[in-house]
């Protein structure tokens, strides 16, 4: 009796969850649908399928691509994300290893400083930081990697340190005693052990940098547009939006993320959980 009641409950839950899934997917579907409709038919009736009169094939896509230079933006986003993440992973894992294994006042202070930076809102530093980037000639797609290393350092050093604390130092010590150089020891012995954490840190940073709008807008936005900047640029200064082009560009912005998510879902969810647990 109790068993069958639970079974009925599960069936009901299955239906509720199915409906909820449709609700969750609907916004993406609506954007996709409207990306094939003419400009004038989007704002009035976004929930209607394209019809013979409203269907414009790939015109919105072609229009949007030429207006925003989306392909270039995709390239910049990819370049900045990939190299920033690589630099962050290598740089902060080395730093985390050093400040965890070498115990003194300075390393303790640095650890708390990195942790502290995680809580500071971006608006607190955005103005002096963008001026600084400008003065130091970091306002280009290569220089911004340095900025991202500095901003990503907090969460990344904190996460790596948490993991390094939990692994014994014996193996590293015997490698160093055998005459292995510290750099060799790090990359041959320590880094392979850190790999699962490195993947999580990479995922968290990639999600942040790929979607980041304000930082790149302030630092390199006038010359180099990443995808979020290109989308915002489409809005223009006069309040009028080319809705068709906007829908098409939203689709192009979402598709790579969805593909990446479906391929790496296991790592992404694991990374997000691990990143969260560190707090």
């Amino acid at each position: 009796m109790a068993y069958s009641r639970q079974k009925i409950f599960n069936v009901i839950m299955f239906f509720i969850m199915s409906i909820l899934s449709v609700v969750f997917l609907a916004p993406l579907f609506i954007v996709l649908m409207n990306s094939f409709k003419g400009n004038l038919f989007i704002a009035d009736a976004p929930f209607v399928f394209p019809s013979k009169e409203t269907f414009v094939s790939f015109n919105n896509y072609l229009n949007g691509l030429s207006k925003t230079g989306f392909i270039k933006s995709f390239g910049w986003s990819l370049f900045i994300t990939v190299f920033s993440v690589l630099v962050i992973i290598i740089g902060t894992s080395m730093t985390a290893w050093y400040i965890t294994r070498i115990k003194n006042k300075l390393t303790k202070f640095l650890y708390y400083l990195f942790a502290f930076s995680m809580i500071v809102p971006f608006q607190m530093v955005m103005f002096p930081m963008s001026k600084m980037a400008n003065i130091l000639n970091l306002d280009n797609p290569v220089g911004i990697i340095v900025i991202y290393l500095g901003f990503g350092a907090g969460l990344s050093v904190f996460t790596f340190s948490g993991f390094i604390k939990s692994i014994p130092a014996d193996i590293e010590e015997s490698a160093l005693l055998d005459g292995c150089k510290p750099l060799q020891t790090f990359f041959m012995v320590v880094f392979p052990i850190l790999k699962p954490t490195a993947i999580s840190v990479a995922i968290l940073n990639a999600m942040w940098i790929w979607n980041d709008y304000l930082l790149p807008y302030l630092v390199i936005g006038s010359k180099y547009r990443t995808i979020p900047i290109a989308i915002q640029y489409l809005k223009g200064g006069y309040g009028s939006i080319d809705m068709g082009a906007m829908m098409a560009m939203l689709v192009l912005a979402i598709v790579p993320i969805v593909i990446f998510y479906l391929v790496c879902q296991k790592y992404i969810i694991k990374g997000v959980i691990e990143g969260a647990v560190k707090f």
Binding site: M94, Y98, S117
Partner: peptide
Amino acid sequence: LFVAPTLIAFLISF
């Protein structure tokens, strides 16, 4: 080697 690169970037941007 291990700390300075990250620390310099951290000083500049944060």
